[in-house]
């Protein structure tokens, strides 16, 4: 049975595209057949994060307008043969696609894929409405900042109104050093405020920048962020995975080092 997951946040720049890329790649690593759809028309980015920008021929708008078949527009990933990307159009705007057209396209893809991941644009306008129209469940990405959490709360309200069955939270860009000092809201604080289920937390890891530079999602590798994303993927498929300790280096020596470190 296939599942359609929208990755959304309200606020821009909190990590929707990075999360989409890593969750999609992670599910493919777990041997599911996955298609990633970039629904951010006019501001295409999922292709560069995936490292597939040089292979685009057709895009989402071409498929919807009937210029090509969905199969022709989907790009097969260079690392995983069971992972595909349907890129967005760069020279069009959000009104080029309607929610009804998205539902029709996604229903067509359901027959072939286990997971369909929709990377949602920022905002709550038409691009957002298009992305959530076809979704079975949602991953709401937020960072531990007042602006991102406020927007996430608004998004959760809109997803509820659309009767999306399952809405889970990802807290991104956590800095445990700041949380410890009391200068950043903790995972518990964020979950307490937003009152939805937590599916994972991702640390603010410089390896994310490196992996984006290279166009290769880091899910599943040994970095803290790579492990965090893999755990999220396992929870999506229904496995019970304990929460990762994000503080990193809590061994004896790093604790001693921490004692001498100036703030």
């Amino acid at each position: 049975m296939s599942e359609v997951i929208v990755v959304t946040s309200g606020k821009g720049g909190v990590g929707k595209t990075t999360t989409s890329a890593n969750v999609g790649t992670g599910l493919a690593k777990l041997e599911y057949k996955v298609v990633l759809i970039d629904t951010d028309i006019g501001l295409r980015n999922l292709d560069v994060v995936m490292g597939l920008e040089n292979r685009i021929v057709y895009n989402l708008v071409d498929v919807v307008e009937g210029n090509c078949r969905a199969k022709q527009a989907m790009i097969k990933d260079k690392r995983y043969s069971n992972l595909y990307l349907l890129p967005s159009a760069q020279t069009r705007d959000k009104s080029s696609v309607t929610p009804e057209q998205m539902v029709k396209l996604v229903d067509e893809l359901r027959e072939e894929f286990d997971y369909i991941i929709l990377d949602c644009p920022a905002g709550i306008e038409q691009g957002f409405q298009n992305a959530i129209a076809a979704a079975d469940r949602a991953l709401v990405v937020t960072t531990p900042e007042v602006s991102a959490i406020r927007d996430a709360d608004r998004i959760i309200g809109l997803l509820d109104a659309k009767e999306i069955k399952k809405v889970d939270l990802i807290v991104n860009r956590l800095r445990m050093d700041m949380v410890k000092k009391g200068d950043m809201m903790s995972i518990e604080d964020v979950v307490d405020i937003l009152a939805i289920d937590l599916i994972g937390a991702v640390p603010d890891d410089e390896n994310i920048v490196i992996s984006t530079n290279q166009g290769e999602p880091l899910v599943g590798n040994s970095t803290l962020a790579g492990q965090a994303y893999m755990n999220i993927c396992k929870r999506i498929i229904g496995e019970e995975v304990p929460m990762l300790d994000l503080s990193g280096g809590t061994g004896f020596f790093s604790k001693i080092a921490g004692l001498f470190k100036k703030n």
Partner: peptide
């Protein structure tokens, strides 16, 4: 008060009126 708990308190109030 730590800035983290200031943020949490501000958000709690803000979201009540938002909601």
């Amino acid at each position: 008060k730590s800035s983290g708990s200031v943020a949490k308190d501000r958000l709690k109030l803000l979201l009540v009126s938002d909601r």
